[in-house]
């Protein structure tokens, strides 16, 4: 309790008064302990059908068993591979196209009406036609992930490029920069941190489409494992799959956060 608040009544809820590190830690732990507590009680005391809701201990044991004995690692690697390949392809198209649209209104005039129309089409609606076009191999899965993010990624990157401060561009021009120098040596480095932020956001979306693709039309990958488990009422394996997907998503997010700090050390001082 700080001295400034002495003499005032200590209150739990105060508008926009920051909490201490200790309070933050206790709160964070508390909510998770409560979550697992309710889960353990519910399954242990028979409030719920233990076949439908297995206790957390069993789910974590299942995760270990899946990796150790049932070759789940291969499924995980396949899923990660799909995400990375599709996301790399989408980025390869979206970064140059988005920057070009943001830099050149003439290019934006061509692609913006096209891209923004596609954004309103839910990617999963393409699954039946993708299956007919590409069969059951990897291609339809990659295509779904690609379609799921490409239009959003292009739009985000184009917006960020358009938001580059006018003074930066005009400074470059009055220093004698031509078009190529302005785009590649000023606009691109200026927008790069925001491109990485956009990629971080969209990578989370790729994971969503991955699960849809693997549940609907796959015999391999994390989602396929979960659908197999459903057939044999192995709810512990389904929940294990969910937890693994969550952990992988979080790992990706943290990797991007780390990359951002490494690549753009000059942004550190700003905060």
């Amino acid at each position: 309790m700080s001295t400034a608040s002495k003499g005032r009544k200590a209150r739990l809820l105060q508008v926009r008064v920051p909490v201490s590190g200790r309070q933050a830690l206790i709160s964070a732990l508390g909510v998770w302990i409560a979550f697992f507590g309710v889960w353990i009680l519910a399954s242990g005391l028979g409030w719920v059908n233990p076949i439908l809701v297995p206790p957390p201990g069993k789910v974590f044991a299942t995760i270990v068993r899946l990796f150790a004995e049932q070759g789940f690692g291969a499924d995980v690697l396949i899923s990660i591979g799909r995400v990375l390949i599709a996301f790399a392809l989408a980025s390869l198209v979206a970064v140059p196209l988005g920057v070009a649209m943001g830099a050149f209104p003439a290019i934006n005039a061509v692609f913006a009406p096209f891209v923004s129309a596609w954004r309103y089409l839910p990617a999963p609606s393409f699954i039946p036609i993708l299956l007919m076009w590409f069969g059951t191999g990897e291609t339809p899965k990659l295509a779904l992930l690609f379609l799921g993010v490409i239009f959003f990624l292009v739009t985000l990157i184009a917006d960020h490029t358009r938001e580059i401060r006018k003074e930066l561009i005009e400074t470059a021009l009055t220093l004698g920069a031509n078009r190529r120098v302005t785009v590649f040596q000023v606009m691109l480095p200026a927008v790069l941190p925001n491109i990485l932020v956009a990629m971080r956001q969209m990578l989370a979306v790729v994971w969503t489409y991955l699960v849809i693709a693997e549940i609907v039309a796959s015999t391999t990958g994390i989602g396929a494992m979960m659908m197999r488990a459903r057939r044999f009422l192995k709810t512990d394996e389904i929940l294990a799959g969910i937890i693994v997907i969550g952990a992988l998503g979080m790992a990706c997010d943290m990797a991007f956060a780390l990359l951002h700090r490494r690549l753009f050390p000059y942004l550190e001082d700003k905060r």
């Binding site: 003074e167 005009e170 009055t174 790069l192």
Partner: peptide, 14 residues
Amino acid sequence: ERGMVFQAYSSFDW
């Protein structure tokens, strides 16, 4: 040949 300094910050932060 006509360099300009603006009111708003124009440093290349990178």
